[in-house]
Design a protein around this nucleic acid. Structure first.
Length: 1096
RNA sequence: ACGCCCGUAGCUCAGUUGGUUAGAGCGCCUCCCUUACAAGGAGGAUGUCGGGGGUUCGAAUCCCUCCGGGCGUACCA
């Protein structure tokens, strides 16, 4: 079969053909074997919520780059693909559509109905995502793709939960959580964003009960959420307001003294404010503090409850009214106050949907915002509102529903991250078992390299210190991880629980006793005082005379089947399966080992078409072979959410880290520096870029963008939908375009019509438009150049043969390009090792374009002419084939489609390629060996000679351009040179003549100019281009050059004249300067001489 | 408020431990459809390296400070 290359580079036809070939041949398949060197990348699993965007493109391309690079190096590579069920995000999207399209809520369709709909949605998304990834050239082993809700992953989730539950690391407790009233679920801190809203500051007066003479009749508190007063259980005042105030004033005075002129005014105002408070407010606060000590109370209006005045330092006399209402169930700080003063109690006044609950008296059933108004109106009527101020307030919003979240006291499941008395056994039952102080501490030890050997450190790239700090800071808090979500989409929490009379439990003991001893069952008995007992201990305790009458039972089975088998019995006993599901990150945290079949690869229930995870004839099981893995590639926003948790669960389940390297790539921003997002309409679909520029172009540019730790600006343009047929396409820069009527719409500056970049405003009659970025043309141009350079090579490679070559057999340009090739290979490899894709592709590009195309291909053209000597042609062919071979390999991880296509053609025309010996061949370049820099082909002499020739060539071309010599005209040239320069030019004279468009070249110490010659000066020699000159212009040019040189010489003379420099700078630097000075002086002398000859 | 990062050509970014005249790509200007490539070739112009101060023989690079931007954490009664 011969490969037919089209005349023009066309990624749209070339790329799908390559994809098909790779997939048909299962080119990316990973199989365990006996190789020692492995390279494992676990894909940061995309959500099935929607499609991929440019951020994913960056992430996927970086992984593919590393994977292809390692695969070519001969590593047994596994790139684990898959998707994440993304509980809350996906359920939110599907619920929203349900409402929009069918006007139904989840309760209308029921739990099973909703899950079914989400599954359908997920299946569609998965198809789209895989299509996008394959379009980008991702070389994952697709047959091994997993989903966090599939049987293999679900079993790992279940086993991990069971293990943690049995170890006492998972517990259920009352905590203040961020409650999303719209989605009716708890959300994690990471799922929040701050938004500023217009709000009010309400000053409320709580009547003092039985005020004594001279005491204030009311305590005034301020709040932004007056409806929460229904749940107040105390009013707090600072225990010693006078001292606190005095300290604040002293601190402010100190600050004023150190203040710069600019800060002064502000500091003075603040001091003034504090002094005014001290004068006007403090006396009352002192009194109230005394009342607090005396155990006095206020009457909570509207609900008519007596609540105590308490003394707590949380109340700051310099802020607000100096007194604070305490609502433990609805404010984190107040919650903390309650922890310090348990006797005040707690009252939750919100229902799950954000309405006021039974505790809110007559406001019950009102939405919290309606209740806010009602409460204020009623207080107003009672004369209990001191004042109301307008104020901008920053409030936490749920990222999923975009609604305001409420701090809410509720029962949730947690994983204990803090240290545990006696420590935690990590990797229990494995060969890697060890003890850690706690889960978070184990992950901290991993980043610090403190894990017991042979476990490796988890290191961050490309800025180890900076990112480790982020990771460590978050883990150091060791905050308990809230893992329950009140959703229907996700892994259900596998715990049967319920409360029952102690007597009933004791009656069940004979029946349950032995069952509860099994090691695949774990039960806890919870006593009313919060303590938790193993069944064996509990039965003893509960049999005692003063045992509590009612207890709670929690039972977890390790295997899912038990839920079906034993469930009815438990239900009969009054236990229910917990309705909540697990936080999505719980299952993603297991990804690096759940996908490999943990806890038991041999029995992992993979799909029929998938490779087995257990051991097979050719190799060991997937888990022992590929765990621990190699590199995790992701964005820094996910370090805490995911990276840290993977390390924790990996250590906990397997006793070792999931990966040793974490490569954190840049975030992609738009032209304004804002994060790309679908809803803002500034996002780009990779498939749109692929359709327009090709996947290789996308990859090239993405690699080029990844320079280091900096985020990347990618200016986004809309393709104008208002272009008439036949007109050229118009692009509208979204960084400057004015926003349209809705979020994600923009106005076309020409027609002033709105365009919809989100694709959601069809009903509103807004024309949809696609987003693109012109930045990708660079990549397309590069690919086009590669394609054409290869085409040129192919035109001349017919009949190429291999013979062992030695440097001495080769001409200067051959030795030069081979030497440059070695340098390029070494440099690209080094840049990839340093996680610097931009530097890597930059070097590859410079070599390919600026050296191979611009010089070598041009230099060898004469050798392919009919009249050239056969030996010279053959050598050129062989070197060209070898260089192209190595260059394609070097470029393959960056632009895989193009290189794969060209590879086939190269193999046909030059079946054996090599230099001293033949290169190892491979049918597809995806499996070819990565090039290795061979020092034998480094040739400093050739590099120096060609560099000299190039310098002359450029100088001559510049002169030609200046004198407007037609490109085709071949100009006679005389060069006045001596010694080494003359020798070099003599050796390269043929090349120079060819490259600079010269006719006869004469080189000698006494070469003379003609009056009409242009003079070109390089270093210590001069060239005369005969018959091109205008004398006046020539004098001008030489004059300018002389001035420039004089300035440079002046600079160096000054430096050398500085005694400090000569005395203190390293001798080598001084010598270098002296040498430069000498050279520049020679040049200047040459120019002056020419000027003299011209009569200047 | 505290911590981390950044500010270099019109745009997007490089610039290793301080050391020749600060670079690249895109864009711009001039010339060229030269037998791989006009998605190309040859040549050219463009910077008080955010401002100020300091250390040093020498600063884009180190220190201080101010201004501007981003991220993280906290706080907001």
């Amino acid at each position: 079969m011969t490969t037919e290359l089209p005349a023009k580079y066309d990624p749209a036809t070339l790329e799908p053909a390559v994809t098909a070939r790779w997939l048909q041949n299962k080119a990316f398949a990973a199989t365990t074997d006996r190789r020692d060197n492995r390279y494992v990348v676990m894909m940061p699993l995309p959500n099935v919520t929607g499609a991929l965007h440019m951020g994913h493109a960056m992430d996927n391309v970086m992984q593919d780059l590393l994977i292809r690079w390692h695969r070519m190096q001969g590593d047994n590579t596994l790139w684990q693909a898959g998707t994440d069920h993304a509980g809350i995000a996906t359920q939110a999207v599907v619920e929203k559509r349900l409402k929009e399209i069918e006007n139904k809520t989840r309760h209308d369709v029921g739990r099973d109905g909703l899950v079914q709909r989400i599954q359908d949605w997920a299946a569609t998304s998965q198809k789209r995502i895989v299509g996008q990834q394959q379009g980008m050239g991702c070389s994952c082993d697709w047959d091994r793709a997993r989903f966090t809700m599939d049987a293999v992953c679900a079993r790992a989730v279940r086993h991990t939960f069971f293990k943690m539950f049995a170890d006492g690391l998972i517990f259920r407790g009352d905590r203040l959580v961020n409650w999303d009233c719209h989605l009716q679920t708890a959300v994690a801190d990471d799922e929040l964003y701050k938004a500023t809203v217009q709000g009010k500051f309400h000053y409320l007066r709580y009547p003092v009960i039985g005020p004594q003479a001279g005491e204030p009749t009311h305590v005034v508190v301020a709040t932004t959420r007056p409806e929460t007063m229904l749940g107040d259980t105390a009013v707090a005042v600072h225990p010693d307001p006078a001292t606190a105030m005095a300290e604040a004033i002293a601190a402010q005075q100190q600050k004023l003294q150190q203040a710069t002129a600019k800060e002064r005014a502000e500091a003075e105002t603040e001091l003034e404010r504090l002094r005014a408070r001290e004068r006007d407010l403090l006396p009352a606060l002192v009194q109230i503090a005394a009342m607090a000590k005396a155990g006095r109370k206020v009457r909570l209006p509207l609900v008519d409850r007596e609540i105590p005045i308490i003394a707590d330092t949380w109340a700051d006399p310099t802020l607000g009214t100096g007194c604070v209402k305490i609502t433990p169930a609805h404010d984190p700080n107040d919650y903390a106050v309650w922890q310090r003063h348990p006797h005040i109690g707690v009252r939750n006044v919100l229902a799950a949907d954000g309405s006021i609950n039974d505790n809110g008296g007559r406001y019950r059933g009102q939405d919290r915002f309606a209740a806010r108004k009602a409460v204020m109106a009623d207080l107003q009527a009672l004369g209990l509102v001191e004042k109301v101020e307008d104020r901008e307030i920053e409030i936490d919003h749920s990222d999923r529903s975009k609604t305001i979240v409420e701090p809410w006291l509720s029962k949730q499941w947690f994983v204990r991250m803090a240290d545990v008395p006696g420590g935690v056994t990590m990797g229990k039952g494995t060969a890697r078992e060890f003890r850690a102080a706690g889960l978070a501490q184990a992950a901290l030890d991993a980043s610090a390299g403190r894990l017991p050997a042979p476990r490796k450190q988890v290191a961050f790239h490309p800025d180890p210190e900076r990112y480790r700090k982020m990771y460590d800071q978050w883990l150091a808090e060791k905050r308990d991880w809230c893992i329950s979500r009140q959703l229907w989409w996700g892994h259900r929490i596998p715990v049967w629980r319920g409360s029952m009379p102690t007597q009933k439990l004791l009656m069940l003991q004979p029946m349950l006793g032995s069952q509860l001893q099994r090691d695949d069952v774990c039960a806890w008995i919870l006593l009313p005082d919060g303590s938790r007992l193993r069944p064996a201990d509990a039965f003893a305790t509960l049999a005692a005379p003063n045992a509590p009458a009612e207890i709670e039972v929690q039972i977890c089975f390790r295997d899912e089947t038990a839920d079906q088998n034993v469930g009815p019995i438990l239900q009969g006993a009054g236990l229910q399966l917990d309705p909540d599901v697990l936080d999505t990150w719980f299952s993603s945290a297991l990804w690096p080992h759940s996908t490999l079949g943990w806890p038991d690869p041999a029995t992992a229930r993979v799909n029929d078409a998938q490779p087995v995870l257990g051991a097979h004839a050719a190799g060991p099981d997937a888990l022992s072979f590929w765990y621990p893995g190699s590199c995790l590639v992701t964005g820094r926003d996910i370090i805490t959410l995911w990276v840290a948790r993977m390390v924790i669960t990996g250590l906990y389940n397997l006793g070792d880290v999931p990966f040793t390297d974490v490569f954190l790539h840049a975030t992609i921003l738009d032209g304004r520096g804002e994060r790309m997002s679908k809803s803002k309409g500034n996002g780009i679909d990779p498939l749109d870029i692929i359709a327009r520029y090709g996947a290789d172009a996308l990859r090239y540019v993405v690699c080029e963008l990844q320079t280091g730790t900096q985020d990347i600006r990618l200016p986004v343009q809309a393709i104008s939908p208002f272009t008439n047929a036949g007109e050229p396409e118009k692009l509208i820069d979204l960084a400057t375009a004015k926003p349209g009527p809705y979020l994600g719409t923009f106005l076309d500056p020409e027609t002033k019509q709105p365009m919809d970049l989100v694709g959601q405003y069809g009903k509103e009659g807004i024309t949809p438009a696609k987003a693109t970025s012109e930045r990708f043309t660079v990549g397309a141009n590069f690919c086009n150049k590669v394609f054409n350079a290869a085409r040129f090579a192919f035109l001349n490679l017919e009949g190429s043969a291999f013979v062992p070559l030695r440097p001495a057999d080769l001409r200067l340009e051959d030795r030069w390009i081979l030497s440059r090739l070695q340098a390029a290979i070494a440099s690209v490899h080094g840049s990839l090792q340093a996680y610097n894709p931009s530097a890597a592709i930059g070097t590859a590009r410079d070599f390919f374009w600026n050296e191979l195309c611009d010089w070598y291909l041009e230099m060898i053209k004469p050798r392919f002419r009919a009249e050239a000597a056969a030996a010279s042609t053959a050598a050129a062919r062989q070197v060209l084939a070898a260089v192209l071979d190595q260059t394609l390999r070097l470029l393959h991880p960056f632009v895989p489609f193009l290189t794969e296509t060209l590879w086939s053609k190269l193999r046909e025309l030059a079946p054996v390629r090599g230099l001293a010996s033949a290169f190892a061949d491979s049918e597809m370049i995806v499996h070819a060996n990565w090039p290795q820099a061979d020092a034998a082909w480094s040739d400093r002499d050739a590099e120096r000679q060609v560099a000299t020739m190039q310098a002359w060539c450029v100088a001559i071309r510049e002169a030609r351009a200046r004198y407007q010599v037609a490109p085709k005209d071949r100009v006679p040239c005389r060069i006045a040179a001596e010694g080494a320069t003359a020798a070099t030019l003599q050796a390269a004279s043929e090349l120079l003549a060819h490259m600079a468009g010269l006719a006869a070249v004469e080189i000698g110490p006494n070469a003379q100019r003609t009056p009409d010659s242009a003079t070109v000066v390089v270093g210590d020699a001069k060239a005369f281009l005969l018959g091109v000159v205008d004398l006046t212009k020539e004098r001008q040019k030489l004059q300018q050059q002389a001035e420039k040189l004089q300035a440079q010489i002046g600079g160096i003379e000054q430096k050398l004249g500085n005694p400090g420099f000569v005395a203190k700078a390293p001798p080598a630097v001084v010598a270098q300067q002296q040498q430069n000075l000498e050279q520049l002086r020679q040049q200047l002398a040459g120019i002056r001489q020419s000027l003299q000859e011209l009569g200047g």
